[in-house]
Computed example of a mutant assay.
Amino acid sequence: MTGDKRPPSRQLAFSLPHDSAFGREDFVVSPVNAEAIAIIDGWPAWPERGLLLVGPAGSGKSHLTAIWADATGAARVAARRLGRDDAPALVAAGAVAVEDLHDGPVDEPALFHLVNTAAEQGARLLLTGRGGLATLPLKLPDLVSRLRAARSITLGEPDDDLLRRVLTKLFADRQLVVDAAVIDFILLRMERSLEAASLVVDRLDRDALAENRSITKRLAGEALSRMAETQGLLWDGED
């Protein structure tokens, strides 16, 4: 057919809302994260040399870390904030999560000391980052060797099925009745991440309440357009 070229679908980039639910009951299991959640749920059984959990932005690393920390009482620290004197206090918790290894700079001797101290004290380690070990900005050979010995699991990008189920659950958690066609409408226009799903639902909940409207395609389109104006717009489709 000619003269019927559709405009490209739009994709929005969002930040994670502060009140997002990170409990185990809030985690939606799918093939892209099943291996990771199985290990988290298997606590206190844990890889002796630690677990390295990697995946793209919005794949669920923070949620999985929160579930593990809740189950274990683990201390949590951003990799870039780790200092050389922090290891004893962190390891005292018996479990330590070091998050966002990709978000440097990282004090590599401090991280190496933490890994060694955890091994000496029998504390369990969870480390997270984007990309595999080879892509992380770590240069200290002994540290890289230690991390290479850890169990590594890669989270896949959320697929349509997972995002649809997450959107459906987030709406249901807020006691919002939203038609499946509206969810599919949102799915085509949002960033492909779990954080985006959470923020979209939060925005639509607030807009529907403020305007005393049901959540329809029209309301969703208006909300997504406003979010695009204030938070940036990405195109997903042909130029």
Rank of each mutant, 00 (worst) to 15 (best):
A13Y: 13
P17Q: 12
D19E: 15
S20V: 15
A21R: 11
F22P: 04
V28Q: 15
V29T: 15
N33Y: 12
A34I: 08
A34H: 12
I37Q: 11
A38Q: 14
L51P: 12
L52K: 07
G58R: 08
G58F: 06
G60W: 07
G60K: 10
H63N: 09
A66R: 04
A66V: 03
A75V: 03
A75T: 07
V77F: 11
V77E: 12
A79D: 14
R80S: 13
R80G: 07
D85Q: 14
D85C: 13
V91Y: 11
A93K: 12
G94K: 08
A95C: 05
L101M: 04
G104S: 04
P105K: 03
F112E: 03
E120L: 01
R124S: 07
L125V: 04
R130H: 00
G131I: 00
A134K: 10
L136R: 01
K139V: 03
D142V: 01
D142I: 01
R148Y: 07
R151Y: 13
R164S: 02
A172K: 14
R174Q: 05
R174A: 06
I186K: 05
M190F: 05
E191W: 01
S193G: 15
S193E: 10
V201D: 13
D202F: 01
R203P: 05
R206Y: 09
N212V: 11
S214L: 12
T216D: 15
A220Y: 09
G221F: 01
E229R: 13
T230C: 10
T230P: 06
Q231H: 13
G232C: 09
D239L: 15
